[in-house]
């Protein structure tokens, strides 16, 4: 019975990872499709491939943070992780239905925290872990913004005397293949590790692994497969509806935004800090846009990011807390 419950919750965790890749697929392919560097089909395959192979590039520090630095390890049980995942998924569905901004990454953290508090009170949370995550909720899009702005300005300054615009654009189109790949690596490396962390916490809670264990290889591969498939299916769906809704983007702008976001994600993955990849690329695109004029910065986009900061963790926390109540009453 316990094994069935464990397998079921692992399946739910991998489904969360799949849907994370699914709805983030547009972030991975929007810029490279809008600049016509890749056809939509190839862009989807490109992003999904690099989401998957990210496990070869990054270690599992983000996963360790999720499993061991958010909630005290002894608090995790199958029921707590289940309630946390349901809290995160339910919050994502609620916000999607109501059209509210959200972040899947923050929803997962809020969900795990809510379920843990429902089981063992506020003392079950690790303050230093939350401190790190809370600060980088704000910092990661700002870093993306500053780097995007700086990279594009440096590129414009370096090439301002170069008059062969077509040749320049061809060069940046090739570079955008690299930057798009790097962004997908960062996306896969950051987001897949959150699911890995959840599964690691589950396996430790179910005593299949010791408390000091690292992430097993099968967990790494299954999480990256799930997010890669999610990106592939989500990107494919979006390809048919994106069409002319994307404003035509110059390759140098897309490359700068992706490079900035990728650099931010690489750093946070290396440092073991879970961040929102959506907010990071949002910040980078805003930074690139603000090189022209500040009116290019869409206040609606910035407002949605700020509301996501405010609403996501409390919202998923509350839902997970409620979901855990039947388990608490059942003892």
């Amino acid at each position: 019975m316990a094994l069935i419950a464990l397998v079921l919750v692992i399946a739910i965790a991998l489904s969360f990872d799949f849907f994370n890749g699914f709805h983030d697929a547009a972030n991975s392919i929007a810029t490279v499709v809008s600049t016509r560097v890749l056809s939509p089909r190839v862009a989807v395959a490109w992003a999904a491939f690099f989401n998957f192979v990210a496990f070869l590039v990054f270690r599992t520090k983000v996963a360790s943070t999720i499993a061991k630095d958010v909630v005290k390890p002894g608090v995790f049980t199958i029921a707590v992780v289940f309630a946390g995942l349901i809290g995160a998924i339910a919050w994502d569905v609620i916000t999607w239905y109501l059209g509210l901004p959200t972040s899947s990454s923050h929803a997962l953290i809020g969900g795990l925290a809510g379920a843990a508090v429902a089981k063992a009170g506020w003392g079950s949370l690790i303050g230093t872990g939350f401190q790190k995550i809370a600060v980088f909720i704000v910092l990661s899009p700002i870093i993306g913004l500053l780097l995007g702005f700086t990279v594009l300005l440096l590129v414009m300054w370096a090439f301002h005397r170069y008059h062969k615009v077509d040749r320049l654009n061809r060069g940046f189109r090739r570079l955008q293949l690299v930057s798009a790949a790097a962004f997908s690596l960062g996306h896969g490396g950051n987001d897949a590790q959150k699911t890995m962390g959840v599964i690691l916490a589950l396996l430790i809670a179910a005593r299949h692994l010791p408390a000091t264990a690292n992430v097993p290889l099968w967990v790494v591969l299954s999480a990256h497969t799930a997010i890669g498939l999610g990106t592939a299916f989500g990107g494919w769906r979006i390809v048919h509806t994106m069409g002319s809704r994307i404003t035509k983007l110059q390759p140098v702008s897309g490359m700068s935004a992706e490079a900035a976001a990728a650099a931010t994600l690489f750093f946070t993955a290396h440092a073991g800090i879970p961040v929102s990849t959506t907010h990071t690329i949002t910040g980078a695109i805003v930074g690139v846009g603000s090189t022209q004029r500040l009116s290019a910065v869409r206040s609606g986009v910035a407002g949605r990011v700020v509301w996501a900061w405010i609403l996501t963790i409390p919202g998923s926390f509350a839902v997970a807390w409620l979901v855990f109540q039947p388990f608490r009453l059942a003892g």
Binding site: N27, A30, I238, T241, T247, K248, L249, T278
Partner: peptide, 13 residues
Amino acid sequence: TPFPPPPPPGGPR
């Protein structure tokens, strides 16, 4: 300006 503003991130729901 040579570079038009980038589109907002995220795809259509």
